[in-house]
Design a protein around this nucleic acid. Sequence first.
DNA 1: TCTAATTCAGACCAATTGGTCTGAATAAAC
DNA 2: GTTTATTCAGACCAATTGGTCTGAATTAGA
Lengths: 231, 231
Amino acid sequence: MSAIRRSKEPAKASNRKRQRVPTAAALNRRMRHTERKRSAILEAALATFSQYGLHGASIDQIASRADVSKTNLFYYFSNKEELYTSVLSYLLDLWLQPLMAFTEDQDPIDAIRDYIRVKLEFSRDHPAESRLFCMEVMQGAPLLLNQLKQPLHDLVENKVTVIRAWIDQGKLAPIEPYHLIFSLWATTQHYADFRVQVEAVAGKTLDDPDFYQETLTSLEKLVLDGVRPRN
Amino acid sequence: MSAIRRSKEPAKASNRKRQRVPTAAALNRRMRHTERKRSAILEAALATFSQYGLHGASIDQIASRADVSKTNLFYYFSNKEELYTSVLSYLLDLWLQPLMAFTEDQDPIDAIRDYIRVKLEFSRDHPAESRLFCMEVMQGAPLLLNQLKQPLHDLVENKVTVIRAWIDQGKLAPIEPYHLIFSLWATTQHYADFRVQVEAVAGKTLDDPDFYQETLTSLEKLVLDGVRPRN
DNA sequence: TCTAATTCAGACCAATTGGTCTGAATAAAC
DNA sequence: GTTTATTCAGACCAATTGGTCTGAATTAGA
């Protein structure tokens, strides 16, 4: 996990008095150390926020989960909200990436199949990220909407065009592109966001390789072929 | 909105001293009044909890939204958790209902079409309920899982059997029933739970009748026909 | 060795908030 | 008119918690 925004830089040089100039190698090591520490904290924050929400999670909880002292946590992040938004903007990037792969020169069926796979892998490998994203959006994304709105809108707009082109070329059934995208998001994320419900109902989660494969196959089939019987 | 559980009964008769026996009509009026008041509070609680979460919502906030004093709120609900679980168990009922309609004697295509419509109507008319349910499940459903697990499991088990029968009769493409159900839940609830995202992307919500119709048509088409081009 | 960065435990503070208590006003039912 | 249920404002309490401060220990780099 790599930090994206930071407002509180550790290792700021005190510039009064004659200062020592650290070597490049040392600076590098410091940076790596700082990054690792920040990452550990961010990871703990992610897990905790995604389970309890912004208000339900306490700094003490996060600090102890990250195995650092509260003092040390505040050494890296100036306050709770900065910690929270750091986590959010990190995962926003992660969340947006897969969609970018859609390009017009692909075969749409392949592109959609790939997209389902990538998103389902994300749900399996990053369920906490998926849930925190969901939670934030669900609450109206008060801290994310500004960052989210424009890039997301533009990206989707772009992909809608691609999908329309596919439809015009007869490579795809005429379906409203927005809803296709929403459906792909919804179905794949469901297995992360509603994990406990899936488990309560089906008795399994994506962590089970067989269940993962079954899910992937079912979603592909459902989206690509629908449920109407073939004769 | 009708209350389901209550642990703090107002209007309890003080049984020392010679008590007056209220007439049936009076009792009835009292009950109705109590119900209305409880409902108003529950409604405010639902709206507030669904936006801010259990911890993010404050009693003061809820009371003022329901237009009652904090004292009065505690006159009807003994504490925050009871208020929260009252809201939850109310909406659990609401949430489970639509699925019961699936029966083997129906035509599966009709049944699925109907189900999509009913669930999408729910997303349009009860978005706060949908979001609160989502939020609770996402956090591991600590207060709902016990109530949820058994009935949900049984209900779904039942419907899975129905779907398998349809498949065996050749009325439905061979799809894993669990995943069909999950996909129907996911796609329809998405429009309530990710409302702000849908709005950011498509510029519209289900409140817009045209958009609602477009969504309904798209989901029906997608699930029933898939996206592969027909020749 | 000297300096600066990092880390910690723990005391502490102030704001929020769930919840109680008081005491009084009002409305409803008889 | 009398009783009982309902309602309120507001004081109040105790727990939680975000965040600060201190002072000291440790580590890394020069």
